[in-house]
Every structure is written in C-alpha cells, then in structure tokens.
Simulated scan of single mutants.
Amino acid sequence: MKIACYPGSFDPITNGHLDIIKRASKMFDEVIVTIMVNPKKKVTFDQQERKEMIEKCTKDLPNVKVVVGEGLTVDFATKLNATALIRGIRAVADYEYELQQATANMMLNDHIETLFFVARPEFSFLSSSVAKEIAFNGGDISKFIPEAINDYVMKKFK
C-alpha cells in the first residue's frame, strides 16, 4: 500500500491545499493530511477545528484521512508508514524553502521521498494567510477556501 503524508498547518485549508489533496489522492492508496503542531506558529483555528474543516472538505475522498501530528515531520510520517511527503510549490521562494526541508528530511530518513506538486496557476498566490487577511477585513473569501467551510471561517472573524 502506497501511503503519502501531506503535512502543514492548514489554518485554514484553502482551495490550493484541497487541489493538491485531490491530485495526490489519485496517485496514492492513502493520503494522510497531517496537521503538524508548531508551537512557534500563531494559529487562528485550533487543531480540532482544522481537523474538522479538512474532514468536511475531503469527505468525498475515501482514501484521505486527517490526523494531528507533532515532532519532526519525517519521523511522524514514518509512524504513519508513509513512503512519501507531499509538498505544494507556488513560487521560487517556496521551492528554496521546500528544497531545504526535503534535503534535511532525506538526511534524517532516506526511505521517505518528498514529492513537489506545482500549484495550479489560479492558486499560485494563495495561502491561508491571504485568505485570513481577506476574511478579517470582511472580504469575499469564496474563491480562496472550499465552499464547505466558507461560513465557518467568516464567523471566526466577526
């Protein structure tokens, strides 16, 4: 069974994240979306809220599950029996950062490959931070986050 781990903060999940999840779900027997706990990162939604939002958005993808992880991503992926880490690339800056992370992970565990999914052009600018900034200022986020969680996210900022 080929298992991929897609780690991130997903605060909240965006249409770009969801696109990558859908694309990865066609390539792997199981995709485990992993909400990684990062004490240095200030988040808007707690772990349970993020988990519920992702589950709501991926309910039609039977080979996708959502978990919360902590520690080194590559170690957590090993516990999940994953053979691949999925990462999204939007721009050159993402690639530089992701290359460093992938190389470090390779040094820690050379049995797990990192696969880069290039963002579709319509999502190449999109991040959770952009979506939250628009929501915070009362803007329309319907083009940025999945419809299934739009109202929930907007309520958080009212």
Rank of each mutant, 00 (worst) to 15 (best):
I3M: 04
A4V: 13
Y6A: 06
Y6P: 09
S9I: 10
P12H: 01
I13A: 13
H17F: 01
H17N: 11
L18D: 06
D19P: 03
I21V: 13
A24M: 14
S25R: 08
M27W: 05
F28V: 14
V31T: 15
V31M: 10
I32E: 02
V33L: 00
T34S: 08
I35T: 13
I35P: 07
M36F: 07
M36P: 07
M36I: 05
V37S: 09
N38M: 00
P39Y: 13
K40T: 15
K42E: 06
F45Y: 09
D46N: 01
Q48P: 05
K56C: 03
C57W: 08
K59M: 00
D60P: 07
N63G: 05
K65N: 11
K65I: 01
K65P: 08
G69E: 04
T73M: 03
T73P: 10
V74E: 06
F76D: 02
A77F: 09
A84H: 15
A84S: 15
L85I: 15
L85W: 00
I86C: 11
G88P: 10
R90I: 05
Y95D: 01
Q101K: 04
Q101L: 06
T103M: 12
T103K: 15
T103W: 08
M106W: 10
M107F: 08
N109E: 11
N109F: 10
H111L: 04
H111W: 03
E113T: 15
T114M: 11
V118P: 04
V118G: 10
A119L: 03
F123R: 15
L126K: 06
S127G: 01
S128D: 10
S128T: 05
S129W: 05
S129C: 09
V130G: 14
V130P: 10
K132V: 06
I134W: 04
A135E: 02
N137K: 12
G138L: 09
G139E: 13
G139M: 13
D140S: 03
I141D: 11
S142I: 08
S142H: 05
P146W: 00
E147R: 15
A148I: 02
I149H: 11
N150S: 02
N150F: 12
D151I: 13
Y152M: 14
V153H: 07
M154I: 08
K155P: 03
K156C: 09
F157T: 09
K158Q: 06
K158I: 04
